[in-house]
């Protein structure tokens, strides 16, 4: 069972979120039509692990790039222009490009990994959350938690409250 509350104003929404957090609701989602730093703070989201993916990707890309260029040169020894077989300046360009390519691709991977998207399972959602409402979703609430959460949300000044069955 998930409890959904929609707010018209940012501060109400944040208050509700803080209260819920304080009351021990850990599994809450804070939906907003635009990024809100405060909401992220409420959830205690600091530095994102995405950066690790970026770094790993960049390093891997650099290594792969150079290895690809050098390896290709060594498979068939075909000297060109009187250059050495492992020619550093051009290979560094390749390395550079591959660093960026892998960095970008790994960042994308990291995004999906960290954000949990694509959302394969049904997720509680209100379309107004993407227009001009701020929505708090308390997920995995059971029994009395439902009422308690609802109370906190209503107290904070929600426009609309809904209950949604979650499929597991």
């Amino acid at each position: 069972m998930a409890v959904i509350g929609a707010f018209a104003y940012e501060e109400d929404f944040l208050a509700a979120a803080e209260n819920l957090k304080a009351s021990g609701f850990d599994n809450i989602s804070l939906l907003s039509p635009l990024p809100l730093e405060e909401a992220q703070e409420v959830l205690g989201l600091g530095k994102s692990p995405v950066r690790r993916f970026s770094l790993a990707g960049a390093i891997l890309g650099g290594i792969c790039g150079f290895a690809m260029a050098a390896g290709t040169a060594l498979v068939f020894i075909l000297p060109t222009g009187g250059r050495t077989i492992i020619t550093l300046p051009p290979f560094l360009v390749i390395t550079y490009e591959m660093t960026i390519l892998f960095g970008v691709l790994f960042t994308l991977l990291g995004f999906h990994f960290v954000s949990g998207l694509p959302a394969w399972r049904d997720k509680p959602y209100l379309p107004s959350a993407n227009i001009d409402h701020f929505v708090v979703v308390v997920e995995g609430a059971a029994g009395e938690q439902v009422a308690r959460a609802e109370a906190i949300i209503r107290d904070a000044g929600a426009d609309e409250i809904r209950h949604v069955e979650e499929d597991q």
Partner: peptide, 8 residues
């Protein structure tokens, strides 16, 4: 209301 990519 809910969203699921799988459904889509």
């Amino acid at each position: 209301m809910s969203i699921s990519v799988l459904d889509a």
